[in-house]
Design a protein around this nucleic acid. Sequence first.
DNA 1: GTCCCGCCTTGATCGAAGTCCAGCCGGGAT
DNA 2: ATCCCGGCTGGACTTCGATCAAGGCGGGAC
Lengths: 227, 227
Amino acid sequence: MDAADFAVVRRNMLFRDLDEALARDIVGDRSPRAYAKGQVLFLQGDRVDGLHLVVSGWVKLYRATEDGVDTVVAIHGPGQSFGEAAALLGAPAHAGAEAATEARVLTIDAERVRARLTADPDIAFRMLASASMHLRVMVEELERLKSLPATRRIAGFLVELAGDARGAVELEFPYEKTLIAGRLGMTPESFSRGLAKLREHGVGVERERVSIDRIETLRAVARGDLA
Amino acid sequence: MDAADFAVVRRNMLFRDLDEALARDIVGDRSPRAYAKGQVLFLQGDRVDGLHLVVSGWVKLYRATEDGVDTVVAIHGPGQSFGEAAALLGAPAHAGAEAATEARVLTIDAERVRARLTADPDIAFRMLASASMHLRVMVEELERLKSLPATRRIAGFLVELAGDARGAVELEFPYEKTLIAGRLGMTPESFSRGLAKLREHGVGVERERVSIDRIETLRAVARGDLA
DNA sequence: GTCCCGCCTTGATCGAAGTCCAGCCGGGAT
DNA sequence: ATCCCGGCTGGACTTCGATCAAGGCGGGAC
């Protein structure tokens, strides 16, 4: 694994403030594996063999409901990990994972982590922190979905993408709009209409390119201060 | 703390398969504290002093959105714990906690758990399991909210309350309908109408008493097999 | 090049749930 | 007992988003 990849790994909660040597030791000689778009990492109910950490690209987690429709539960990008708890506990995955774009994902051997864990309980704290963060994100998502109108949810998504940028922002959608719509809990049609409505707040969309005149305006929309 | 209370504690994920002596040791000499309905355990953003475990009654976790409305994130009953990760990490709570009914809650000192954790890494696994379960519940809730019609969500709630009972079931709502409605992500009015619609599937409601002719029928409704 | 297929957009319609409102009922206080 | 008050129910109306349906556009296969 090269230095650039390792830098991404270190952005993850689990490894962020971990001792460099220990971090390398845990990763071992594993290298990220490349997945084609649409390729399945594991299915819902599968026993997960290790912790997954996205190095590049995006991976979607989804659950199949009885009637065949699947709902997107989360989408993870570079530096984000998933399936930690399931892997460590040897429990079946409660969601399936599939590459949403071309992606490279590092799989870290659960057994190896477990071994290091008994040696250094601090690792356990990090894993808890990681799980806790997932929980927080989930809760926020839930809160958003509970009542916010589509336009606000979309504005929120764009704001998240923009990070802490100021003023005019140019960015591009990381994956298909259909998928974004699913993640935001709406149909592609509603997503499209919502984006159209955001035009009056200085948002321009052309294919996957998005230009935002003033990100602050959008933040206001996301907060609900602006219609 | 008496034996009955301790039995409830042991139903919790964290303590379920833990060695009896160790479990008692972790709890220490703490006793459950009684809270009146509406009393606040901690506020969103507070530093949490310990793990909370509900012994009796119900505690709601809620988040205040900017516009003053709060959304109910989760409601925990006997044997369920919350705030584990926050307490252990010393992070601020991402939700506030308030007694939804009269409730008794055991607060377990985080420092004490942390100390035991270095001694027995197995505890870390249990905490992860606990966090992971919370996550799963959250994910399922999210999935439900994403698309299911009100009636199905209500049916699902009743089924959950009924546990694995069969045939005719009598039960009562654990807390106000308004609160249940909030948890299910709908208004009290919608909840009321939804319950009314369930009458045609053999559900009778009188104040907080609910009588279900055949729980299996309700399971079918929750699954979507029945309109 | 042309054709086709997915993805996206837009329009029209419909239904489910939210809002606003009025009335009911039961419990607690006086 | 009577009066409130809070929680619940149900009606009327409205609004948001899903569904159905019809194109547009671009990219890949040939």
